[in-house]
Simulated scan of single mutants.
Amino acid sequence: MSQFQLTSPDIKEGHFMAKTFEFNGFGCDGPNKSPALAWSDAPAGTKSFAVTVFDPDAPTGSGFWHWLVLDIPATVSALAQGAGSGALPTGARTLRNDYGLYEFGGACPPPGHGMHRYQFTVWALPTETLAVPDEASAAVVGFMLNANALGKATITATYAR
């Protein structure tokens, strides 16, 4: 039996990300590109995918959500580099991240705060649409993803300033 997996030509498990994926704002000056992502061997019954990027090391008490993409059609198995700035598959929707933006927000840990982990996760879902409103908080989205996912696959990359 195959295992649901996430791969990327741009980021690698446990490795430092390129400045290409750094945010532009909050004191950071990167190009703010989202990395290319591809997934395979989704669980049976998958009707849509979601992609999230979460930094559990942010000094907030609740982590930091960098990207929340929902309702990616089950026929899609990849997102190109830079898709986070609007080039998403038809039907997909982006919810507001913790920067307050409806797009990908790159890494921007506080200077001298040490290494942060960025968890890029693809979620396989049993419905075509995740039952959350467009204005749902990232915490509600995370709750609903965990409550409904048929499976998930993650690449954890790192970054520091």
Results as ranks from 00 to 15, higher is better:
36 A>T: 10
64 F>H: 08
101 L>T: 11
54 F>V: 01
31 P>S: 14
35 P>N: 09
122 V>N: 10
46 T>F: 03
106 G>A: 02
111 P>A: 13
122 V>W: 04
56 P>T: 02
118 Y>I: 00
58 A>E: 09
41 D>A: 14
86 G>S: 04
77 S>E: 11
38 A>I: 04
71 D>A: 07
54 F>R: 01
103 E>H: 13
82 G>A: 11
86 G>V: 00
94 T>K: 05
52 T>R: 04
109 P>M: 07
49 F>L: 11
108 C>P: 11
56 P>C: 03
123 W>F: 06
64 F>E: 00
93 R>T: 05
76 V>R: 12
115 M>T: 15
82 G>K: 08
113 H>G: 14
103 E>C: 15
33 K>R: 14
65 W>D: 11
42 A>C: 12
75 T>S: 15
115 M>P: 09
63 G>P: 02
64 F>D: 02
116 H>Q: 03
57 D>N: 15
73 P>S: 10
81 Q>L: 13
109 P>S: 09
83 A>F: 03
87 A>L: 03
123 W>C: 07
46 T>L: 09
123 W>T: 05
50 A>S: 15
100 G>F: 12
44 A>C: 02
119 Q>A: 14
121 T>Y: 05
118 Y>C: 00
41 D>K: 14
113 H>L: 11
81 Q>E: 15
73 P>A: 09
47 K>Y: 05
72 I>P: 06
97 N>F: 03
45 G>K: 10
99 Y>I: 02
56 P>K: 06
85 S>G: 15
86 G>A: 03
78 A>M: 04
113 H>W: 12
87 A>E: 08
49 F>N: 12
105 G>K: 10
78 A>V: 02
91 G>W: 06
38 A>N: 12
116 H>S: 04
58 A>L: 04
36 A>P: 11
104 F>V: 01
62 S>F: 08
105 G>N: 07
89 P>G: 11
62 S>C: 05
84 G>R: 02
30 G>C: 06
32 N>K: 05
66 H>E: 07
62 S>W: 06
95 L>K: 05
83 A>H: 03
87 A>V: 00
113 H>P: 04
97 N>E: 04
72 I>H: 07
49 F>V: 11
54 F>W: 09
71 D>K: 08
119 Q>P: 08
83 A>D: 06
93 R>L: 01
101 L>H: 13
33 K>Q: 15
101 L>V: 09
67 W>L: 09
69 V>D: 02
93 R>W: 00
107 A>G: 08
64 F>G: 00
97 N>P: 08
75 T>H: 09
60 T>S: 14
95 L>A: 05
101 L>C: 11
62 S>N: 12
73 P>V: 06
96 R>E: 12
